[in-house]
């Protein structure tokens, strides 16, 4: 026990810790523990129970003006994502918009300048499309089932965060 001075109340330090830093009091430790558990459990509970939502069912994939010209000039840096992820029922419509000056091939079709192709996906699937706007000529569209059980929602959110992290 360390005394802070004459007449003053003894400080609240852990017995036998006279030479080290004062250990937190038991109440404070409990509080910190509760905060830690809460910090872990809150996102887990929220991520499990809160339904997966999107602002729109539609994912817009726009081929920007000048894409063909850039490729022809030798710029092979892809500014378009190579993978698009959709979820059946809630975010399941891919809209491809060709804003370039030349026709672009997407999958089994030709998109004229200014034209859009709206493709709804109704089943979980992985679809590899030929795409002339990509330097490697491919676009992968991954369609997942809607996560409806809590553990599915949590797993979906973890995958989503990992994808965001890997592409950032």
């Amino acid at each position: 026990m360390i005394s802070t001075g004459a007449g003053s109340a003894p400080s609240d330090v852990h017995p036998g810790n006279e030479v080290g830093l004062p250990a937190p009091p038991r109440k404070r430790r409990r509080g910190l523990f509760a905060i830690g558990v809460g910090a872990i459990l809150t996102p887990v509970v929220f991520g499990s129970l809160w339904p997966v939502t999107f602002a729109s069912r539609e994912e817009i994939f726009e081929i920007p003006k000048g894409t063909f010209a850039r490729h022809m000039a030798g710029d092979h840096h892809d500014i378009l994502p190579s993978e698009i992820d959709l979820v059946v029922g809630i975010h399941n419509v891919l809209t491809l918009k060709n804003s370039d000056d030349v026709p672009q091939t997407f999958g089994p079709t030709l998109l004229m300048p200014g034209q859009s192709l709206r493709i709804p996906f109704t089943r979980p699937s992985e679809n590899s499309f030929n795409c002339t706007a990509h330097t490697n000529g491919q676009l992968l569209v991954v369609v997942e089932a809607e996560p409806t059980w809590p553990w599915e929602r949590l797993a979906w959110r973890v995958r989503w965060l990992l994808r965001r992290w890997s592409t950032s």
């Binding site: 129970l49 029922g89 709206r118 409806t148």
Partner: peptide
């Protein structure tokens, strides 16, 4: 409750189920 409370009812279909060109 969370499994079933947020299940969406299928929306009325408008247009083609296939991919659509616009225009």
């Amino acid at each position: 409750g969370t499994r079933f409370a947020f299940l969406r009812t299928p929306q009325a279909e408008q247009g083609l189920r296939a991919g659509t060109f616009d225009p």
